[in-house]
């Protein structure tokens, strides 16, 4: 990873939040948007610049499930497994997605195309079971709709 580019990106994001470490979550979110995950070099640069212990930044980055420290796929497929989606069959949809992509929830395909994740309720229960690909919501999912959905994104 290019050191200069990391410095530049981190600087830009930190400037946006006035170098205020109390806004760490927003800082990390913005950085994750750039890289799709939080690379080690980025966390180190954040800690160094804000003069915070790396252990502290690392704790925050690992505390929230929304942050990933491992590279994620080009497309992030999230399956809502909140209560409403759960009772409407989210796990059958998840199972089918797992089969089609060949990975369990929480993992990324080898070609770095897809990451499969579960989320606990996104507040759109009426649309359950819900699958979110990148930022697009697909409601009323069924296992039989999974194949064509993935085909749309597969390159």
């Amino acid at each position: 990873m290019a050191v200069e580019k990391v410095k530049e990106n981190v600087k830009e994001v930190l400037e946006r939040y006035g170098y205020n470490s109390a806004r760490m979550i927003e800082i990390l979110q913005d950085l994750q948007d750039i890289y799709s995950y939080l690379p080690k070099e980025v966390l180190e640069e954040v800690a160094n610049t804000l003069e915070l212990p790396l252990a502290r930044v690392y704790h925050i980055a690992t505390f929230f499930r929304a942050f990933s420290l491992l590279p994620r796929g080009k497309h992030v497929v999230q399956v809502c497994t909140g209560t409403a989606c759960h009772v409407k069959g989210a796990y059958r949809v998840l199972e089918r997605l797992s089969d089609v992509l060949g990975i369990p929830a929480g993992k990324t395909t080898k070609d770095l195309q897809f990451t499969l994740e579960t989320v606990n309720c996104v507040g759109a229960c009426a649309l359950g079971p819900l699958v979110i690909v990148d930022d697009k919501y697909y409601g009323h999912m069924t296992p039989s709709k999974v194949d064509s959905l993935i085909e749309e994104y597969r390159e």
């Binding site: 080690k40 790396l54 252990a55 690392y58 704790h59 420290l69």
Partner: peptide
């Protein structure tokens, strides 16, 4: 030295140096 910290939360929470690697600090 702040060499140690926590990782994750809930049942996965544990104490490690960052990235569970040898820490220069």
């Amino acid at each position: 030295r702040h060499a140690l910290g926590y990782e994750s939360r809930g049942p996965e929470r544990r104490v490690v140096p960052p990235f569970d690697e040898p820490n220069p600090l």
